[in-house]
Design a protein around this nucleic acid. Structure first.
Ligand SMILES: [Zn+2]
Ligand SMILES: [Zn+2]
Ligand SMILES: [Zn+2]
Ligand SMILES: [Zn+2]
Lengths: 147, 147
DNA sequence: ATTGATATTGATACTCAATCTCAATATGAA
DNA sequence: TTCATATTGAGATTGAGTATCAATATCAAT
């Protein structure tokens, strides 16, 4: 039995008494397709090129819905803006963001994750999620920057 | 010989060919005084209560100036907004932010810091700064939330 | 202390992302 | 097919942050 993201989303909506609409499907599939991290504005621009009636509000509403459901996560950019990435069949990871070329490198470090839990426990803090981003210059941009 | 934050700021401005104004001093001192992390809007509201002529733009400009100089750092809140904290005579630290009462707990973990450098090295990434925030519920709010 | 080049300021207008409103529409259970 | 209700999109609105620019403050040189 195969559980596609679409199916999982559908089941989530059903469980919440919400409806599956073509807009929601279309935004979900955009995120599944996307290589880089997508901004709301970019999603809106790209999708409304296909379907001119798509509303900006729906894009924001759907992203919030997906975020609440835990199907997408935020990524912070160096300028303070942010984008989204889907979390279907992808383990938790954090980001290194190049301040020059905006490239995003994903990393995972089990030790850091464990230490975060340990620190939380020390403070009797109940962790729900975290943001861990290293800003700097990627290999290529580091070399250029020396010049 | 004592170097007050004010003195350090003054010297920085001088070195940059910038001028020391009463607005800049006043914003710096607000940050030094502040216990909690201050938002631009809060700073503007509080300071303009004293000096009704203070402009919003000056608050933003000064915060950016202080940030560029490395005298203040950002803190991210759970709703995506952010505040500032001064960095005079305070070692680097990261944050745990309570999603209920908004309380901010500061933590330091040398192992995590070292691991970040190590990861960066692996990717030949040159780290400049990082944001590491754990969102969740503080001790008090965790207890309430069980109810 | 006065002068003057220039950095700074604040009022205002503006931008842009994100949200709100609400009438029209789509969904899906019955 | 029906119909209660969840959803949508156009357009208005908010709110944080920025740009403009004439008036002002700073500070180094006199
Ligand atoms: Zn992590
Ligand atoms: Zn790069
Ligand atoms: Zn740190
Ligand atoms: Zn709390």
């Amino acid at each position: 039995m195969k559980t596609s993201p679409q199916k999982v989303f559908q089941q989530y909506l059903e469980a919440q008494g919400l409806k599956l609409t073509k807009q929601r499907t279309s935004i979900l599939e955009y995120l599944l397709r996307a290589q880089n991290h997508s901004t709301p504005e970019r999603i809106y621009r790209d999708l409304s090129a296909q379907d001119a009636t798509l509303g900006r509000a729906t894009v924001f509403r759907t992203l919030h819905l997906l975020e609440r459901a835990g199907f997408v996560g935020k990524i912070l950019f160096a300028d303070g803006s942010h984008g989204y990435e889907h979390k279907f069949a992808r383990p938790h990871h954090d980001h290194m963001v190049c301040v020059d070329c905006k490239q995003v490198i994903e990393f995972t470090n089990p030790t850091i994750e464990k230490l975060q839990d340990q620190i939380s426990r020390e403070f009797q803090f109940t962790p729900l999620w975290h943001t861990h981003e290293i800003f700097g210059r990627c290999r290529k941009c580091s070399q250029k920057a020396v010049v």
